[in-house]
């Protein structure tokens, strides 16, 4: 049998700590940040019945972090009576986006085709973003369910970004950058984003220069959004695990550095 090494104890410690905290079910009080507040205000202040495009630009690996973000935004947009047009520019986001939209629409008793539509996946994201600026109908002749786009009542009168209130990119990478470079710069459509926490600093310059209108970042962003909408969900629950693991990592860094300083002093002596 293999000997248990120090790293194995670190793994076991992390697992036990998160499991214990999750079982205790501590409730955290989270204050919304200004960027999350911007997203909330943007959706809140749109006239009811406005059309928003939501693009699921992520892979399945980031689902635990990205799903609470998407759900919180979808719930808010649907509750305000906005129409949503969904799509995916990453193949893996296609069915995930459809399921999420369908789930939230069902919660609010909304009808497919009238209140929301899902266009599906289009490969080559830069070409797809540019192409929708010219014609959504020609880019997506059929929706995800195989129905002709002309048969979808919601899509009547929506030809390109001119009829879209804003695009919300749910992303785990840099794809949102292409929405800003090609969608916003060329076709003047507002870009908003819900991204993983690791991507937040990537988008800070765009947010500061108003090239991006709003940003919800990671589990914390989702938890803040849930606080604003008054409906707790995966973000608030996930924040508990995230806070615990962050503190655990900081403790390990501290212990590692104490050990390092002590060994260096011993070496000097």
């Amino acid at each position: 049998m293999k000997r248990i090494e120090s790293r194995h104890w670190i793994f076991i410690g992390l697992f036990l700590l998160i499991a214990a905290v999750m079982l205790l079910g501590v409730e955290l009080n989270i204050n919304p940040s200004s960027e999350t507040q911007k997203m909330y205000d943007y959706i809140e202040n749109l006239p009811p019945g406005s059309t928003l495009m939501i693009s699921f630009d992520h892979e399945a690996s980031s689902l635990p972090e990205i799903r609470p973000v998407a759900l919180a935004i979808l719930r808010h947009a649907f509750s305000k009576g906005h129409k949503l047009v969904g799509l995916a520019l990453f193949a893996e986001g296609t069915v995930i986006g459809y399921r999420l939209m369908d789930r939230v629409a069902t919660e609010y008793g909304l009808e497919y085709g009238r209140d929301y539509a899902y266009l599906g996946f289009k490969p080559q994201y830069i070409a797809a973003i540019l192409s929708m600026g010219e014609s959504i109908q020609e880019t997506f002749p059929e929706d995800y369910l195989g129905r002709s786009i002309d048969e979808i009542p919601l899509m009547n009168g929506i030809y390109n970004y001119d009829q879209i209130g804003g695009v919300i990119s749910i992303a785990d990478g840099s794809l949102t950058t292409h929405w800003m470079e090609y969608g916003a710069a060329r076709y003047n459509v507002d870009i908003l984003a819900g991204v993983t926490a690791a991507m937040v600093t990537t988008y800070d310059p765009y947010l500061a220069s108003n090239q991006m209108q709003a940003l919800v970042g990671g589990l914390r962003g989702a938890a803040e959004y849930e606080r604003l909408t008054g409906r707790r969900g995966g973000g608030s629950r996930g924040m508990l695990a995230q806070t615990t693991s962050h503190l655990y990592v900081l403790l390990l860094i501290l212990l590692g550095n104490i050990a390092f300083i002590r060994s260096r002093r011993k070496g000097n002596n």
């Binding site: 120090s6 992390l14 980031s62 689902l63 635990p64 693991s245 990592v249 550095n257």
Partner: peptide, 28 residues
């Protein structure tokens, strides 16, 4: 199959980061 496997592999990063934080993040 694919989505749970990918999420699992991604989640494993937390354990490796925890281990690396003890061994590698040193104020040299």
């Amino acid at each position: 199959v694919q989505a749970p496997m990918q999420s699992t592999v991604f989640a494993l990063l937390a354990f490796f980061v925890a281990s690396a934080s003890y061994r590698g993040f040193r104020a040299r």
